[in-house]
């Protein structure tokens, strides 16, 4: 099982067409910085675990109610923005008619995109419960309704998952604007 795991090092170094070590110091630093940036307007998307291929996702990559984890991908500089775990995205496809009015505007062909980071304790929210039709955080069972702004419908999460507007350009999914809210949880630090 160890050899089937996706290590963080693989995520960090396997993402880009040109390895970091082959670049000049300044360029490498810029690239590392870009890996940590939140998704940018115009970025495309690549599936988690397939960073090295950097194959941009298309609407055809998602079937109905398929859950897919993704990173934003800068196609111009060939940089996967996977420097921080807070950058992980989740995509799901629904029948457009089942989406709320606001979501339909952000979700071409019914494909919604949200931050995958739970607003409670920052675990990745990845468990689709078919029975309840909600996305559940595996750590503390916060539940989100992805058809309606990822609003919290159960558990301790204090607020919705931030949504990320999508476009389809030339058959490829890309990012149409910034997150609708702050990414991340409510880390308490004491008073």
């Amino acid at each position: 099982m160890g050899d089937t795991s996706i290590s963080r090092r693989t995520l960090l170094t396997g993402c880009c067409a040109t390895p970091v070590f082959a670049r000049t110091g300044a360029a490498a630093a810029d690239e590392e910085s870009a890996q940590f940036e939140l998704p940018q307007t115009g970025d495309q998307l690549v599936e988690v675990g397939h960073e090295a291929e950097a194959k941009p996702l298309t609407p055809q990559d998602l079937g109905l109610q398929d859950l897919l984890l993704a990173w934003a991908y800068d196609p111009r500089n060939k940089i996967v923005r996977n420097g921080s775990r807070l950058n992980m995205l989740l995509l799901m496809r629904f029948e457009p008619a089942t989406l709320g009015d606001a979501e339909r505007q952000l979700a071409p062909e019914g494909i919604v995109a949200y931050s995958a980071v739970c607003t409670h304790q920052q675990c990745w929210v990845t468990d689709w419960l078919k029975s309840a039709q909600v996305l559940q955080c595996p750590c503390h069972q916060s539940q989100y309704d992805l058809r309606h702004s990822a609003k919290v419908v159960g558990g301790p999460a204090p607020r919705s998952l931030p949504a990320l507007p999508l476009n389809v350009n030339n058959g490829i999914l890309d990012i149409a604007g910034p997150f609708t809210g702050r990414v991340g949880g409510e880390q308490q630090q004491g008073t």
Binding site: I6, L11, V48, G49, L129, P138
Partner: peptide, 15 residues
């Protein structure tokens, strides 16, 4: 399930 480093890995269907 495949282990994704940093992701909870229970080996159980959450449903």
């Amino acid at each position: 399930k495949q282990l994704l480093v940093g992701q909870l890995w229970l080996g159980a269907d959450p449903d």
